[in-house]
Every structure is written in structure tokens, then in C-alpha cells.
Nucleic acid binder design. Structure first.
Lengths: 142, 142
DNA sequence: TCCCATTATTTGTATATACAAATATAAACT
DNA sequence: AGTTTATATTTGTATATACAAATAATGGGA
């Protein structure tokens, strides 16, 4: 059944979640090559792009709760893709060499993901959708 | 930090999930009164609206996996809000009296949720967003 | 200088969701 | 009729995510 044929397709809760789940799946497929979940992949990319980034910054940019960031980091650290160096009350996250080596493949996955969804709805259309979702999300006070 | 200020706000994966999480929270607050998660609430409403509905139909309309529907039903059944009657390979889900009694309050929650988000972005705007999200979701082959 | 409030992060625990395999029944084909 | 295929549901297990409490460190005021 199509999402728009569901009994609840007029409901924002239902639609937003249904869409997010479908996109999640698309993303999972795209990142399977590097054996990372999309969240882990984005986090790793951020650590590569900004070595020494702090968990609190990751919280802001990934819009996840601190505990979730900790859990994601634990996993990446266990896989030796990042290291956490704690000093005082702050922690810095650095990519390991192994993590940095993964970058080209991460970019491939990202590109694959983008082209997958762009081919499904068109570049412009999807950019527009992203924009209105952002606008809406901004108005939803945390 | 606003969603649109994040490093990844141009990415569909990030945006769709960030939005869904925020809406999830808004919905959770709205349904707290009846002590149900939004998913459980929608499932219960569907069972009240369509007594005897089968899990497979719930799978279609809520766009969740069969195992997820089973788990949601288990909880509602444990709370004596629905009963499952299995005959052969099919199962029928009926609301209990206790479940049916909850309907007015469920509708209140639904209404509260709607007015909350309508007041944040406007009725028309949000309806439009829901429509484009549906359109997009339809194109994402399961 | 010491206490308190604030900030940063982690831990314990709980939840919704999913995948894959298992079970059980019904339908279809030979 | 008997065997195979398809359908409906549940179970076992795993995952991302979150909340609330705990820990730890910093900074500001008395």
C-alpha cells in the first residue's frame, strides 16, 4: 500500500515517520558497503572533517541527545574508527587513520544515496522538500 | 541550534529524521494524558474504528513491519485495551470496553496534537507539507 | 577560599522498531 | 489426496534512540 493510501496519510505524525523510515532504509542500503548505519557514518564524517570535535557540537549538528551521541561514539571507537580524548570536562573526538582511510568510500556512499533519491523525485523537487522540512523543524521548539 | 543551521541540513536523511523526531516528541506530549505512545494510540484508534481488523491491515495502514505490529498489540493487550482472537492463520483485533471507553480522550489528544502543529506552521502550510511528504514517500519503493 | 550553580559527558534503563527465522494455516497444483 | 507454495502471525534477537540520574569539572559569587 502506498503511504498516501493509508488511513492516516493526512496526519503529520504518521506521514513524517513513514517517510523517515523509508528514507532510513534507502540510506541503510547506501551505507551498507562500509558496514555503518547512516548515523554512524555521518558522525564519522563529521569527526574527519573537524578533528577534535566535541560531543556537544555533535549533539547540535546531528540533533541527537547527548546519550545517543555517546552511544554512537562508543561503537565507532570500538571499531577503531575514532578515538575520544578526555581532558577535564570536555572530550575531543579524533578520527583514527583507519577512520580517515574510509573517507573516499564514505563519500561514495553519500553520493550514491543522493543520486538514488534525486533520481526518484528529481533534484529540485527534493531540495524543495528538504527546505520546507527544515523550515518546519525550525518552528518545532525542541 | 536550529535544524536549518546544522551542517547536514541539506541532507534528506538528516532532515527527515530530525523532523520526525521533533514531531514524535510533540505527539508524545499530546498523548501523554492517556499514557500511550502515539503509535499505540493510532493502533488503538484503528481497532476501535474497525473492530476485528487484522494485523496485516494494520501493517498496511500504519506502514510498520508485521513484527512491530505484533509488539504494539502485545502491549495494548496487556493493558486490556484490545483482545486478539486467532482463528486459523488469521487474527482479529477487537477493542475491549476499556479500550472503547478511551475513545473520547483519544480524540482530544488527536485534536490537541493537530492544533499544536497547525498553530506552529499554519493549517494550509502544514497540509501542503504533509502532501509533499506523501508524494515523496510513495515514490520510495519499500 | 569555599560553596554553589552550570556545563559536559557518561551510565543505567527503557522503548519503538526491524530483520530473519519459526510456526501455522490456507491455497494451488499435479 | 498429497505435496508444494503462499500467506499470516509470532518469536528471538539486535539496533538506534531517548530519559533521567550520576559523575565530573569549571566558573562565579559570598
Amino acid at each position: 500500500m502506498k503511504t498516501s493510501e493509508s488511513k492516516y496519510c493526512q496526519c503529520l505524525y504518521f506521514t513524517a515517520n513513514a517517510l523517515a523510515r523509508k528514507i532510513e532504509k534507502l540510506a541503510q542500503v547506501s551505507w551498507r558497503k562500509v558496514d555503518l548505519s547512516p548515523s554512524h557514518a555521518y558522525l564519522l564524517m563529521m569527526a574527519i572533517d573537524e578533528p577534535g570535535v566535541q560531543p556537544s557540537t555533535l549533539v547540535d549538528h546531528l540533533q541527537l541527545q547527548p546519550s545517543t551521541i555517546t552511544r554512537l561514539l562508543e561503537k565507532l571507537e570500538a571499531r577503531k574508527l575514532v578515538v575520544r580524548i578526555t581532558e577535564g570536562k570536555t572530550t575531543n573526538v579524533y578520527p583514527t587513520q583507519k577512520g580517515k582511510d574510509l573517507l573516499p568510500r564514505l563519500k561514495e556512499c553519500l553520493h550514491e544515496f543522493y543520486s538514488r533519491y534525486a533520481s526518484l523525485l528529481g533534484k529540485e523537487e527534493s531540495a524543495k522538500l528538504v527546505q520546507s522540512m527544515n523550515k518546519f523543524a525550525d518552528k518545532l521548539i525542541v
